[in-house]
Design a protein around this nucleic acid. Structure first.
Lengths: 333, 333
DNA sequence: CGCGGCGCTGCTCATCTGAGCACAGACGGC
DNA sequence: GCCGTCTGTGCTCAGATGAGCAGCGCCGCG
């Protein structure tokens, strides 16, 4: 574009957007035809001179969402603006995930859920009556049924209750010390039935944990801080439905994984609709592993994380935007 | 607005501005009529959810300009975005002033100019041939004609040259030590004629100085640092055409003022078109004094200064937006 | 010097958008 | 319980906008 046209475009944009004048008026003012004004405005937008932002706590970042979808082959993405306050951030993401769940079509009939702080927040924000007759199934082990209903069970129950449906809890710890114990409990009808139901869900909703010594799995006593440190040393970036993965979304410790009760990751990768809710600066590495290895079809996250994922990806971008997990060889349905 | 409508408005705004969908499409998507979408968008704009910014070095801030015009009763205002870099800021403001001068209608026939760094920058940015047959007159004393053509004279000459016209320099120092000397030089034909021409100009262009010991008047040797300190102690905020004013735009030291050669401030206040170019954080106080006392009809400044002026003014805002200088009793034309 | 291609300009026409209007349902006073 | 008012909704219509097209000047090439 010629220098004089550029200046003209800027002036036109000012009059159009700041002063809400009509293109015709602008034309008269600048001594050009209204068609030229229109073209100038189009050019200004193309060249990025015009920046439109929607400032609202519940706003989303649609361009970023599109970019995420394209780059990682996601079915959908939800990106909320990142506030500086971390509590506010979790609030927003949880609300967005709840909104998404509530508005999802077709409405899920069976929903597999994990547990954790993020999931609890999402459950809190779900509107009463978000579905009718939903079946909620826990997809990974947590605190047992006998314990105070306060963590894993409560989250699943709440989602079911608000969805006017029923809940099926997984009555098992998350991780066993001995493989034999795990295998035997898995073969028990009460557990096997739940696992079967979990595998049959049409939709999944889960969060992700950071691989660090203050993760929920450590707090619950399934792992010691030292054990997690070892996992980190072996490349763990975080956990998904109780299973630790590395930067490529691979299981870090197969032995540990075999002792973990719940849906396995390959099953999760094969489903048609799985929603991961992962936000915050610490969770970037897990988020990256999850999206780039095809663990989810829908990602709910914040703007900063989304940008980071896209920036990461830029540096090793494949020319035709092939989603990374396809390069990694996602198993066929 | 109802909560649900607000959310709807945000979604509509996202689809409209981020995704450039038509209102009709959005209506179909959100399950509402296109008129409702239109109203939602209008509301979103009203409530300030939509923020449009034009990012370009030569962009202006039209809403701020309008606010300045209204608050201070200016004929016009030019506000450029403030970059973090101060050199860049002066560059932008000078360019904007030059643009303004070049585009001004009716084209000035006689232009009264002051001198200083700002004015020199403006002169530099004026396009060759910005006017045809302009008459430029110096309105305040500067370095004498005999000195190296490099400061005051050069600026005026350059403006005239680029405007295909002629220049009339004021062959006098800015400030005399003794009143008698000043009076006698003023009565000399060579000076009196210039002063008369200066008073008869149809347009004025000037900068402003900060009242501090490293001002141009000190560097040129007209005042000592100590003298300026005294002026500051007496309330001086800066100088305009060589004359020190306080926060209300009043002459700080009448005795000093009488020894200063050039157009006096009351004459400046009476003219129909006077352009003040004042930018930068240090010059806020002078800028405020200038606009609120009606010394200029057009202000060219930067965004930060403009905002500061408006914020200042807010606190002591008169209900009907009466320009301040009218409250102070501007002398009738 | 003439010709074909290219890019820009201003136009026609279809679509999109906003202002004004009439109607329906909600609310409150009587 | 009834009626006036008032807000919100969908409509008509005119004005604003964008897509596509023909004309024109500029440039390079033969």
């Amino acid at each position: 574009m010629i220098e004089s046209d550029e200046l003209l475009a800027v002036r036109a944009a000012e009059l159009y957007y700041d002063e809400t004048k009509t293109q015709d008026e602008i034309g008269a003012l600048l001594g050009i035809t209204r068609w030229k004004v229109g073209r100038l405005l189009a050019q200004a937008r193309e060249l990025g001179y015009i920046r439109i932002e929607i400032v609202h706590p519940r706003a989303r970042r649609l361009p970023l969402e599109r970019a995420l979808r394209e780059r990682f082959g996601l079915v959908d993405a939800v990106v909320v603006p990142s506030p500086s306050d971390s509590t506010e951030l979790h609030e927003r993401v949880a609300r967005a995930a709840a909104d998404y769940l509530g508005a999802m079509r077709p409405v899920p009939r069976t929903l597999g859920v994990s547990w954790g702080r993020t999931l609890r927040d999402v459950a809190d924000h779900l509107p009463d009556g978000w579905a009718t007759g939903i079946s909620v199934v826990q997809i990974n082990g947590g605190v047992s049924l006998n314990q105070r209903v306060g963590t894993a069970a409560a989250t699943a129950a709440r989602i079911a209750e608000k969805g006017r449906g029923d809940v099926t809890l997984l009555p098992s710890p998350a991780i066993f010390e001995r493989l034999e114990t795990k295998l035997s409990i898995e073969s028990d009808r009460t557990v096997a039935d739940v696992l079967r139901a979990a595998a049959a869900a049409d939709t999944y909703l889960y969060g992700a944990g950071v691989a660090s010594s203050d993760s929920a799995l450590v707090h619950s006593g399934y792992l010691t801080a030292a054990e997690v440190d070892v996992l980190v040393a072996r490349g763990a970036v975080g956990d998904v439905v109780g299973r630790y993965i590395d930067g490529e979304g691979m299981i870090v410790d197969p032995t540990l994984d075999e002792r973990t009760v719940g849906l396995d990751l390959e099953a999760l990768r094969g489903v048609t609709r799985s929603i991961a809710v992962i936000a915050g600066a610490q969770k970037r590495a897990v988020a990256r592993a999850v999206v780039s290895s095809g663990l989810c079809t829908v990602l709910v996250t914040d703007e900063a994380t989304a940008s980071a994922l896209l920036a990461d990806h830029d540096s090793l971008n494949s020319p035709q935007h092939t989603p990374e997990h396809e390069l990694l060889g996602r198993n066929a349905p």
